[in-house]
Design a protein around this nucleic acid. Structure first.
Length: 482
DNA sequence: CGGGTTTGACCTGCGC
DNA sequence: GCGCAGGTCAAACCCG
């Protein structure tokens, strides 16, 4: 949500600049030279065009200096109706003393000018109010659509669950349906192994790393409950679930460049795989709980399997955010659409179907082998023709989980965009047109983003990381981020 | 000299 | 309780 909010900032700023520039350029409102009378006060007068009050009534109340164009007092202002304003810089310094008391000695010419200015300002104010009104209408519409989608999703999930319960004869996992923690929390160790989960086939053979639940804690331990060093937080509260995110990608390099800095702290020969498994810890920030395991696939040595767990407690570099977004969205959607019991093959297949329609989101499978469920994003295959033109080579595709999910359509960030083409209107449209499930996926993603409780970790809430902002009640993927 | 890697030892959970 | 396997620690080593 925060990301969503932030992603909109540029547009707002654009509007702001346009408005203020318009006023300044057309109304000659620059504060430098105008002295409107006996008040040779160089202080700046400002007009709040977005306030419901008449601009003329505020003019002599603000004495902010021209040297403080970004005075914080000008930001985060609320309108009289209590709603936040759409503009940060709605106060325009007219350099004119517009208060009635100051105009007694003005010449007629000045009065005329002022009246003209006031008229113009009022007109502009009206125009902006109309614009504001339109935006509100749009927001209402979007909110309405979102609610409808949520309803739809809830119905779909209910159907799935009922169907599943019937199929399973209400035996094994029926109890999950009543789990007050909600559908996401069902991805826990109780889930039976995914049939397709054969070691070495997808994801790490035996164990894979991660992602976690922001709600529980923004810093999680790496799977095992051992390491006291990384478990200082909430050790008394067992996580409701712990999920890892595994990324399969072809790479000759020993490591995938994911934009983060890692320090190797161990290596082990895992059973069933002659290739050693390396253990890495994020070193971009002191105490960052994110870890990752890197291991080559036993069957195909060119495939590098990287598994992430934990949330970064620091901002991520742009290169790391790309992957974080993709994997986060993928995992989020995957988990969102898999209903409560991930043992449901139907749900899983549906999810994969959804993924196949999502550009930049690789084929995904869910492995629930103990102790933690692992989402595997397979970047070694090309799910569909729609799948982005983005080369998913491990060496170029940063993998970062554990970060706020920024839904793909918002990804074309100035910085991120330079690295690789992200979602475009065309690809998105194509995806929508080609797969009706896209709407469901979209709704799930939006639901995750909008509905997910904000992590209470201030650090993680920053714009680039928010590591714990991943939907799933916080499950965020790391680039390690999970 | 500081930071990263290697590697054997140790800890812990789990299955039998 | 025992053994196994995964995961982690930390001393030794390497490198710029």
């Amino acid at each position: 949500m925060e990301n969503h909010h932030q992603m909109q900032q540029p547009n707002r700023e654009f509007t702001i600049l346009r408005s203020t520039d318009f006023l300044r350029q057309n109304l000659n409102l620059y504060p430098t030279t105008v002295n409107t009378g006996e008040h040779a006060d160089p202080s700046i007068k400002e007009v709040d065009f977005f306030s419901s009050r008449s601009p003329t009534k505020n003019s002599d109340t603000d004495n902010s200096s021209p040297e403080e164009p970004h005075d914080h007092r000008h930001t985060n202002m609320a309108k009289d109706d209590g709603s936040p304003t759409l503009f940060n810089d709605q106060l325009v310094n007219t350099a004119l003393n517009l208060s009635p008391s100051a105009g007694l000695s003005r010449s007629a010419a000045n009065d005329e000018n002022i009246e003209t200015l006031l008229t113009t300002l009022q007109r502009e104010s009206l125009r902006l109010k109309e614009e504001n009104c339109k935006l509100r209408t749009m927001l209402d519409q979007i909110t309405k659509n979102y609610n409808q989608l949520q309803l739809f999703i809830a119905l779909q999930k209910q159907k799935q669950c009922q169907k599943m319960e019937t199929n399973l004869n209400g035996m094994m996992f029926g109890q999950h349906l009543l789990d007050p923690r909600g559908p996401f929390t069902k991805l826990d160790a109780q889930v039976a192994p995914f049939p397709d989960d054969k070691s070495g086939q997808r994801g790490l053979p035996e164990t894979d790393p991660v992602e976690d639940v922001p709600e529980q804690s923004t810093s999680q331990s790496w799977g095992s409950s051992k390491s006291p060093k990384f478990e200082e937080s909430n050790s008394s509260e067992l996580p409701l679930k712990k999920t890892r995110v595994s990324v399969r990608a072809r790479s000759e390099a020993p490591l995938i460049s994911d934009g983060c800095q890692w320090r190797k702290y161990g290596q082990k020969i895992a059973k069933g795989n002659p290739c050693p498994r390396a253990y890495y810890r994020c070193t971009m920030a002191v105490g960052c709980p994110v870890r990752k395991q890197v291991q080559r696939c036993m069957d195909d040595k060119t495939v590098l399997i990287t598994t992430y767990e934990g949330n970064h407690n620091h901002p991520l570099p742009p290169s790391a955010i790309v992957m974080a977004n993709s994997t986060s969205a993928a995992a989020s959607m995957f988990l969102s659409s898999s209903c409560s019991t991930s043992n449901n093959n139907e749900a899983l297949s549906n999810t994969v179907g959804v993924f196949s329609s999502m550009p930049y989101i690789p084929m995904a499978t869910l492995s629930t082998s103990a102790p933690f469920p692992t989402i595997t994003l397979d970047m070694t295959t090309n799910p569909s023709a729609l799948t982005s033109p983005l080369p998913l080579h491990a060496t170029t595709f940063p993998q970062l989980l554990g970060h706020p999910v920024i839904f793909p359509h918002k990804m074309p960030h100035p910085l991120l965009g330079q690295q690789q083409p992200l979602f475009t209107t065309e690809t998105m449209s194509a995806a929508i047109a080609s797969n009706p499930n896209f709407t469901i996926a979209l709704a799930a993603a939006i639901s995750s983003i909008i509905g997910a409780p904000r992590g209470n970790d201030g650090i993680n809430n920053n714009s680039s990381n928010g590591g714990s902002d991943l939907p799933l009640n916080g499950t965020s993927m790391l680039p390690g981020s999970t």
